[in-house]
Design a protein around this nucleic acid. Sequence first.
DNA 1: TTGTATGCGTTATCAT
DNA 2: ATGATAACGCATACAA
Lengths: 319, 319
Amino acid sequence: MTNIKDLAKMAGVSVTTVSRVLNHHPYVTEEKKNAVLEAIKVSNYHKNINAVHLSKGKTLLIGVVLPFSDHPYFALLLKGIAKQALENNYKLVLFQTDYMESREMEALQMLKQKQIDSLIICSRTIDWPIIEEHLLFGPIVLCEQTVGKMVSTTFVNHYKTFFEALEYLYHKGHEKIGYCIARNSGTNSQDREFAYRDFVKKYQLRYRPDYIINECLHFEDGEKAIEHIKALDQPPSALLVTSDQVAAGIVTCCQKQNISIPDKLAIIGFDNQPIAKIMNITTIEIPLVDMGKNLFLQALNGDLSNKEMSVKLIERGTV
Amino acid sequence: MTNIKDLAKMAGVSVTTVSRVLNHHPYVTEEKKNAVLEAIKVSNYHKNINAVHLSKGKTLLIGVVLPFSDHPYFALLLKGIAKQALENNYKLVLFQTDYMESREMEALQMLKQKQIDSLIICSRTIDWPIIEEHLLFGPIVLCEQTVGKMVSTTFVNHYKTFFEALEYLYHKGHEKIGYCIARNSGTNSQDREFAYRDFVKKYQLRYRPDYIINECLHFEDGEKAIEHIKALDQPPSALLVTSDQVAAGIVTCCQKQNISIPDKLAIIGFDNQPIAKIMNITTIEIPLVDMGKNLFLQALNGDLSNKEMSVKLIERGTV
DNA sequence: TTGTATGCGTTATCAT
DNA sequence: ATGATAACGCATACAA
């Protein structure tokens, strides 16, 4: 592989001059410039980016931590991140963690080792203090609402969103309301539980832990959710479902089992994915792609900022 | 940031010795080793991987080219790749191309510039000769069947698979069979069209280009497919649908429109995704995750190999 | 406008 | 067993 030294020799100039034309710096005569350009062409030269990185201390690489890439929520987030990365000539390093701390640590390590310039954490298991101590090594951006933490974030207010959705159902006549979440840890799920508890308190309803259905991630989990509530003495009459995929699975399952929607069971999905439109599912739109874009920009920029994204209730046929 | 030079000074040894303990090389006394280890601990030292890369000429990074990450087919492929990458301590650089040649070129460029060790191309738009000339710079692995090309590949035989599926439908009494594909370019789609043409010829049926429904990617495209065939003078009685997502969309749409499945319209999906099971869709199982794993291994290994993955018809309720 | 020399942090080679 | 030193390929401060 030819390097700038070779080019310099070929063009009869110094490596500095070669570097100058390579990086479009001023102060180089047309004549020498053309000589270098010619040398580049005939030698089929290309920079060794690793050397550039070492020299500059930058990689043009941004890490993305997410549990799975085969879930629409994260796939859409990733889409936004990737789109923005492209525009800024950055590449992404993907960390698919399956929510394993060790894998999240790897991402943090790469930041520490300067193998990536910054890190976007779409969802995490690892505790905040660990993240905090890695803030020294480069920008870290979170996709969750934080309080009193010195990190950049892009988030939706899940507490408010959930509370309002619960009230919406309440005013439609529902008093027994359950909800499905992906996992019970995680700040988003916590925020939702707070909302649920406050809602129950406000309207003097009974707090029923068995109305909270955990591990609802994919379409096929809809069936599980239905089985869960069918086993209850007093099944809920409405369900908040934090993924349209799962909501679609629930609707499909109800059709099979002749459970009338929304009469017997009302459903509100989340995200407003295409499947929700097709299946006429009432849902709460979350601008995932835009969130992804913003996450990237924050990671690139490095300044501290916190951006709340607004959501929108899309009324369709399942409530 | 402390470097090995600092460590050497702290431990009272040479940089070579430090490097030795860092890389678990033999020939270093316990005493000095401990001194270095201690220095590493107190200084909170971590390697600068860029320097390692420059020195070794390797990055432990493998590029993955795919059009979208928010489609189950690619998401599953990616999942397999990521899983295997993890086991081998490799990281992934993601190129989301939207089938734009320029973006595929970027990936090729990164291989050329040694920013990635090898490249996995899950699907492409770019022509073979371009790829061929980048083979010099590192391993490139394709996810398609090739003939007479010196590349490693992991693929399913789409010609055979399609032909057999068509015959299966034919023996079930169908003579008017259409199919849905994601895009009409691409080698996989071409293989399928060859199969379709040969099938039509073998059974002396009419070749109907309007039985080929293009741009069927997502759940919501199922509706489009139904509209398409409804507009035909002689709608097909069976449809091969190259994605379970689309098949599910079709089934859902048919339910809404009271089109009886399989009586009025038979459906065979592809991939055997969870949604196919839930919705009881007959489908052809493709081991996408395993394919992803194999793609990674080929990329890592660098040797030339071509692996055909076997598929399996899963008979359910839509035929 | 151009070139020399040095730094970036490791690994590898070759003495000792 | 250990250490000096070159090599990796590029960027850049500084000198000219």
